[in-house]
């Protein structure tokens, strides 16, 4: 178990070290997120009712699109530089690659979210610094990164992977997106937790199911 965790840690360390040097991924995700938040802010400025009901959707659309940029980059960089074989040759269970990559993608998403949320708070006027809401952000991001890492591995060999990933990913993550938006709305509108706890439960169940599925099928996905 110690060796397994060390190998997962090595994959994460390698991705962060490389990102620290080239800043390709995080900067693209961040600039894109800020642009989306700003554009929606101006678009919804005149309609206060729409603003109140749509803000959670705007926030999650921003996170999802930014996350997709990161997911596309995550495995493509291994494939394009021929390093995927190097990872596959390591004498460790291949789920190490999945968990290393998924955790890396999740942390990149969370970094972007940590920067975007205070700006969202300032522009849209919703209190995002509630522990319950931050829990929803983390749960939604886990689900998206878990499924996204699996699918980006599936499409990495395809020439049209940049187009293929969102086409496969968005329908499959629809439950997590809807649940995250509904739960976020509940927090923004200060509803009692009992009224929207079903969406939080869906998020937890979705995360657990897809992490388990990914663990079981990842080795087969990597085969030619």
């Amino acid at each position: 178990m110690k060796l397994y965790l060390r190998a997962v840690g090595a994959v994460i360390w390698k991705d962060f070290r490389a990102e620290w040097r080239n800043r390709e991924n995080l900067s693209a995700m961040l600039v894109f997120s800020l642009l989306v938040i700003l554009i929606f802010n101006f678009a919804l400025e005149l309609d206060l009712n729409a603003r109140a009901s749509l803000s959670a959707g705007v926030l999650w659309t921003t996170f999802i699109f930014a996350g997709t940029i990161g997911l596309n980059h995550s495995l493509a960089v291994e494939k394009d530089r021929g390093c995927l074989d190097g990872l596959l040759l390591a004498p460790v269970d291949r789920s190490v690659i999945y968990f290393g990559k998924a955790i890396g993608n999740l942390v990149f998403m969370l970094i972007v979210e940590a920067i975007v949320l205070p700006i969202f708070n300032f522009l849209y006027g919703f209190n995002v610094f509630q522990p319950g809401f931050l829990g929803v952000v983390i749960l939604g991001s886990i689900g998206y990164a878990a499924v996204g890492t699996l699918l980006s591995t599936m499409v990495v060999q395809a020439r049209t992977r940049d187009i293929l990933l969102p086409i496969l990913l968005f329908p499959l993550t629809l439950p997590v997106i809807i649940a995250a938006v509904r739960a976020s709305q509940g927090f923004f509108q200060n509803l009692p937790l009992a009224e929207f706890s079903i969406w939080v439960n869906i998020l937890v169940a979705y995360d657990l199911i897809f992490i388990a599925v990914a663990f079981m099928v990842f080795d087969y996905i990597l085969e030619d």
């Binding site: 190998a7 840690g9 490389a18 080239n22 530089r81 190097g86 004498p91």
Partner: peptide, 27 residues
């Protein structure tokens, strides 16, 4: 041990960091 016509190395890591990374995977 496998050597391909692609070096299977990360351009944004130093030579030592590349071996350090693979070293962790191979203990």
């Amino acid at each position: 041990g496998v050597v391909s016509h692609q070096p299977l190395l990360y351009g944004d890591l130093t030579a030592e960091e590349n071996l350090h990374f693979y070293g962790k995977l191979y203990s």
